Simulated assay, not measured.
Amino acid sequence: MNQTATAIDVVGLRKAYGDHTVLDGVDIAVAEGTVYALLGPNGAGKTTIVRILSTLTTADGGSARVAGYDVRTQSDDVRRSIGVTGQFSAIDELLTGRENVRLMADLAHLPRREAAARAAELLERFGLTDAADRRAATYSGGMKRRLDLAMTLVSRPQLIFLDEPTTGLDPRSRRDLWQIVRELLTEGVTVFLTTQYLEEADQLAHQVGLLDNGRLVAEGTPAELKALAGGETLDDVFLALTGHPATPATDLDSNDDTKEPVR
Rank of each mutant, 00 (worst) to 15 (best):
T6R: 15
A7V: 04
A7Q: 04
V10I: 11
L13F: 03
R14W: 02
A16Y: 01
T21Q: 13
D24F: 01
G25C: 04
G25D: 09
I28T: 02
V30C: 09
A37R: 00
G40Y: 01
G40R: 08
P41A: 12
P41L: 08
A44Y: 08
T48L: 06
I49K: 02
L53P: 01
T57W: 09
D60C: 10
G62R: 01
G62I: 06
A64L: 02
A67W: 08
Q74E: 15
T85V: 15
D92R: 09
E93I: 13
L95W: 11
R98A: 12
R102L: 14
L103K: 05
M104Y: 13
P111A: 10
R113A: 15
A117T: 15
E121Q: 11
G127S: 04
L128I: 08
A137M: 14
S140Y: 08
G141N: 09
G142A: 12
R146C: 07
R146V: 07
M151G: 10
T152R: 04
T152V: 06
L153T: 11
T166F: 03
T166D: 09
R172H: 14
R174D: 02
G188I: 03
L198E: 12
Q203D: 15
L210G: 05
N213P: 00
V217Y: 09
L225P: 07
G230V: 06
G230T: 03
G230M: 02
G231K: 06
T233H: 10
L234C: 06
D236L: 05
T242L: 01
K259R: 15
E260T: 14
E260C: 06
P261K: 02
V262H: 00
